[in-house]
């Protein structure tokens, strides 16, 4: 009940302000495009850099988008209403995370293969990149939401959020970029993809509870 209500509310709100969905995607593409300009357009060099570059850009795009996850609700008072409601905060938070993944994670997932192609990744590596980003972005959003919940009431949330959350992103980056390099070298990838999936499931089960606790702390009750 509260899951579908929150989900449809989030999607409707985003639908009415579509720029907020597009911006993280533009950011993602631009950051990746800076690397060939800054490093070198040599295909073999770009292909070795590609997994890390795409992952770091995706990580930053998620981080920036997650900063505003609870801010609007905090400012208009909707968050207070949620906190004082008799139901558990877990389900609405889970719905918000799912909605946020559909709105910002999914576009990144769909764009990743194109960027992989532009960076001269081989075809099997592009396929694995797609799956890895698909499995990894939910984890990034769930972990970022914990930081967003803790910093929602602070003026200078953005830079602080990245200090809190970036160290937590290390495993996703290591496995996500590592598996693409594996694929590029023709090594088996299913084990590492399973680890990424495990991290996604664990973070989506546990993070809403931490986010709910963080929101209660930030609102001071």
């Amino acid at each position: 009940m509260s899951f579908s209500a929150t989900l449809s509310r989030e999607l409707l709100l985003a639908w009415r302000r579509p720029a907020e969905i597009i911006n993280p995607l533009f950011f993602f593409v631009m950051v990746v495009a800076l690397f060939p300009l800054g490093v070198s357009p040599r295909p073999e060099l770009l292909a070795t850099l590609a997994p890390g570059v795409v992952w770091v850009a995706a990580l930053l795009a998620v981080l920036l988008s997650v900063d505003g996850l609870f801010r609007a609700d905090h400012e208009c008072g909707a968050l207070e209403q949620l906190l004082t409601a008799p139901q558990s905060l877990y389900i609405p938070v889970l719905a918000k995370l799912v909605a946020h993944w559909i709105l910002t994670g999914l576009p990144l997932v769909l764009m990743a293969p194109l960027l992989g192609y532009m960076l001269h990744l081989s075809e099997p590596a592009i396929a694995v990149l797609f799956v890895a980003v698909l499995l990894g972005t939910p984890t990034l959003i769930a972990l970022g939401a914990i930081g967003a919940a803790l910093t929602v009431s602070l003026r200078s949330g953005g830079i602080l959020l990245s200090l809190l959350v970036l160290p937590l992103y290390v495993p996703v980056l290591v496995f996500g970029a590592g598996v693409v390099t594996y694929a590029a070298n023709g090594l088996p990838v299913s084990g590492v993809l399973a680890l990424l999936a495990a991290m996604m499931l664990a973070s989506f089960v546990l993070a809403p509870a931490a986010v709910a606790a963080g929101l209660r702390i930030s609102s001071g009750n």
């Binding site: 930081g147 160290p167 937590l168 290390v170 495993p171």
Partner: peptide
């Protein structure tokens, strides 16, 4: 807030350790 963050961090530090070792 710091308590919640360090609790999340402790769980994460284990995964970080293994991911980085791998």
């Amino acid at each position: 807030a710091a308590g919640l963050l360090s609790l999340v961090g402790v769980i994460n530090v284990v995964i970080v350790k293994y991911s980085v070792e791998w």
